[in-house]
């Protein structure tokens, strides 16, 4: 699976690249508009991460070019501006998602995977992990072909951890993803724990072979036993 990151901030680019390579993606990078144009002219990508604020122009031009040429790569706009205007413009131009900076690496993984899933597995929208099958669109989870009843937050947590399987997801990233942006000023994220506890209980009851581990109280990691 090939991913192109168009981003002018080299360190940012490096972080994203490293994180996505860990997931087994083939990652190419372009630090400016010009090199981005030459790359998309030659190769096809499954997903393009596109920074709008490029030194040599607006990244939205690249999106326009892609859509004009009928190239149907998945595009996630990455913007430092976090402005509604950019978001609307980008989505109207055919971007698949909009990710405002700053973001957590776990969030990036989850978004990229969601886009790839929508683009590439048109027939099969299920995610299989161990003996668990999750369907994010229908919001269902089955273990050994038996449906697991999860509430909205439990499901969101599980899907997020699945997207970042075998990786440490820190509590802040999880809380921001599940509880939304505005809840991020919580005194502590202890309230996440009760949801995790319930989730673990349900997974154990259904004899699932995946496990949610607490890592030093920093965050959680989903492992397959």
């Amino acid at each position: 699976m090939k991913i192109l990151i168009i981003e002018d901030e080299i360190d940012m680019l490096e972080n994203m690249k490293q994180s996505l390579e860990k997931e087994g993606f083939l990652v190419e990078t372009a630090p400016n508009k010009q090199s981005a144009f030459s790359k998309i002219g030659i190769y096809n990508y499954d997903c393009i991460l596109l920074d709008i604020g490029l030194p040599d122009g607006n990244g939205l031009d690249i999106l326009k070019e892609l859509k004009n040429n009928g190239i149907n790569d998945g595009v996630i706009i990455v913007s430092a501006k976090d402005s509604l205007d950019d978001k609307l413009k980008g989505l109207n131009l055919g971007a698949d998602d909009y990710l405002p900076k700053p973001f957590h690496m776990a969030e990036l993984n989850a978004r990229v995977k969601a886009v790839l899933r929508r683009k590439n597995f048109e027939g099969n929208k299920n995610i299989e992990i161990g003996n668990l099958i999750a369907n994010p669109e229908e919001r269902t989870v089955m273990v050994n072909n038996i449906k697991v009843d999860l509430n909205r937050k439990e499901l969101d947590i599980l899907l997020y951890l699945i997207a970042n399987k075998n990786r440490l997801v820190n509590k802040t990233a999880l809380a921001e993803h599940v509880w939304g942006d505005h809840i991020d000023q919580a005194d502590n994220f202890e309230f996440i724990y009760s949801q995790i506890k319930n989730l673990r209980k349900k997974l154990t009851i259904h004899k699932s072979d995946i496990e949610i581990k607490s890592v030093y109280g920093i965050g959680y990691r989903l492992d397959i036993l």
């Binding site: 360190d11 940012m12 972080n15 490293q18 430092a80 900076k101 700053p102 690496m105 109280g217 920093i218």
Partner: peptide, 29 residues
Amino acid sequence: QTPIAISINKLELILEKNNLNEEQAKTFS
């Protein structure tokens, strides 16, 4: 915004590596 984001992401990547002991992980955290 950008330097903060980069630093956070770098730390996230470090923490993901399983070769940290608890004390180191807690400091990074």
